[in-house]
Nucleic acid binder design. Structure first.
Lengths: 330, 330
DNA sequence: GTGAAAGCGCTAACAC
DNA sequence: GTGTTAGCGCTTTCAC
């Protein structure tokens, strides 16, 4: 049962006060080189590490960052968690994973908890949350980074720029003479509607086509919803020959249903996903998709958080370029 | 900027001492019903929540559980994280994700950190760690739950029982007259060798076959290693007609290579994975695999941890039944 | 059944 | 450039 080494122990060993040890660690005031050296060697000798509980109690800030996402088991968010954790580790910050299951009540509860526990920061992909729900966080002075397709309250934002990639996707689809474009989008009550849908709609005109209302299906970001959505689309009199999906999980569900119905992809219907989740290249046919790079998003989020903790006062937005990945399904 | 409500505030509002508030919360000593009621309503009224930093400083225990795994982006571990988080949330415990990237130095560093930070518990899937590396944890009195195929030091264990499932897999493979069985296993220096390999080997005899040394390939748990391993197996004079893989990621790599080499699966070679990762049913042909249920593992780990925190002194092992999932690749 | 008070280890204001 | 010290909010011992 090793005893904990405290700053007082280090101070004694180095022949200084514990305040000096603290200042050596934080760099918040000048310390004479030889004092610093003595402290540092005492720290090394004794194997001292700071007690984060004491620090948190004193400063009112924990060393935790909450990652609040709809579904941590979704490969996109799992990768985001991995990258974020990796990036923040060097600062001694731990990443706490929080699943909202796409429910607004859980999103709000988790935000409230982040405030109560005095988390040092929050990275969140809101799903049904409203921008004003973020106020609790900003009021408490907790830096927040939102990873979302559209701006979301007065916080830092990591947002993909998918315009070019979406245009490429439309080029590809229309080059194959497809004009009846559909989308299986996210739920109607999701925060900010579905920006991926809006983008597709706004670009479709440039390609001599449009997304008629009856060819837009709304549903959850699940495989089941993808299958159901695809089935409904195939029932339309005006049957689509290209289907975009709000994410890859939905696209997989659509593929399930296509197989069940004996509909050839991409022969009869082209299919385009979003995210480039890890499994996108595993399905057959391989999924053509618009890639949102989870690792770049994670790195950007970590950087914004670091800057914020270093005192940057204004909010920043980082754009991450999405990428069209042409595989076999379109 | 909402001010924090402390126990002292609650105590004042309820007309008691802060000690009483503490005891109402912890239940560690009897409190008169009416006192308790007064305290509880004051808590509700003021919206009090305990300051975990202060509690941690005082008790020497944080409210964090570390989940230490080789790769959080692996769907199996992502699901484990999701379940664990869900299960522990009710206790006010947060799950911190820690990626070791299958490296022993990182595994050790993370364990050391769990001790330093006085984590309340650790759930770990060791990869290259040695059982004695766990001693730091046990010496510090930190409850640990290991999720692994074999016992691992004096800690609680969640372990799959894959005997029946593996037997089923062998039945299926040998019923198709396959006798030249191979395995792409984990690395030779992994902790405890590769129990999935040992199990397969020990059962093979019952099916009139064996795993000759030259048909066992060792490598990392990656897609690339799976592809490389499969290529090597196909180069053998004694070419296998059934290949087991230590996990599904490896199996996917093997499939990549089979496609590249124009080898039909399952026609020429049957392929069996382990885990039933989320993508197993997505690949073509769909992967036949031995399912290790991540959610059951997560629930069991949470339960063991809870029991331990409630004071159970002895170590327990929970067996989780693996399941043979027959799909198309074998 | 309840209260008073010490003290966990750190940070930062203040003093020199 | 360095030291002294108060106090963050809680738990728990001791006293009644």
């Amino acid at each position: 049962m090793q005893e904990r080494v405290t700053m007082a122990d280090v101070a004694r060993a180095a022949g200084v006060s514990s305040a000096t040890v603290s200042y050596v660690l934080s760099g918040k005031r000048a310390v004479a080189p030889q004092t610093r050296a003595a402290v540092e060697s005492a720290i090394a000798e004794l194997g001292f590490t700071v007690n984060t509980a004491a620090r948190s109690l004193r400063t009112g800030r924990s060393s935790l960052v909450a990652l609040i996402v709809p579904d941590i088991a979704n490969p996109f968010f799992a990768q985001l968690a991995a990258t974020l954790q990796e990036e923040l580790r060097g600062m001694g910050i731990h990443v706490v994973v929080c699943n909202t299951r796409a429910r607004r009540d859980e999103e709000r509860a988790l935000l409230a908890e982040a405030v109560q526990q005095r988390f040092t920061g929050v990275v969140i992909t809101p799903f049904r949350l409203l921008p004003r729900d973020m106020e609790t966080l900003t009021a408490a002075g907790i830096p927040a980074v939102v990873s979302a397709d559209v701006p979301f309250g007065p916080v830092d934002l990591v947002t993909p720029d998918a315009r070019t990639a979406t245009r490429r996707a439309l080029e590809r689809v229309t080059a194959a003479q497809r004009r009846r474009i559909a989308m299986i989008a996210g739920p109607r009550d999701a925060t900010g509607g579905d920006p991926r849908l809006e983008l597709l709609r706004s670009l479709a005109g440039q390609f001599g086509t449009a997304l008629p209302r009856e060819l837009v299906i709304r549903g959850e970001h699940t495989r089941e919803a993808g299958a159901a959505g695809f089935a409904r689309l195939m029932d339309r009199r005006y049957r689509p020959d290209a289907v975009f999906c709000a994410n890859d999980v939905i696209a997989i569900g659509a593929m399930d249903k296509a197989r069940e119905l004996g509909i050839d992809i991409p022969g009869e219907v082209a299919l385009v996903g979003h995210d480039d989740a890890a499994f996108a290249s595993l399905v057959h046919p391989q999924l053509t998709t618009i890639r949102y790079p989870a690792d770049s998003v994670g790195r950007a989020a970590a950087r914004l958080l670091r800057e914020r903790l270093d005192g940057r006062p204004v909010h920043r937005t980082v754009h991450v370029e999405a990428e069209f990945v042409a595989r076999d399904s379109a």
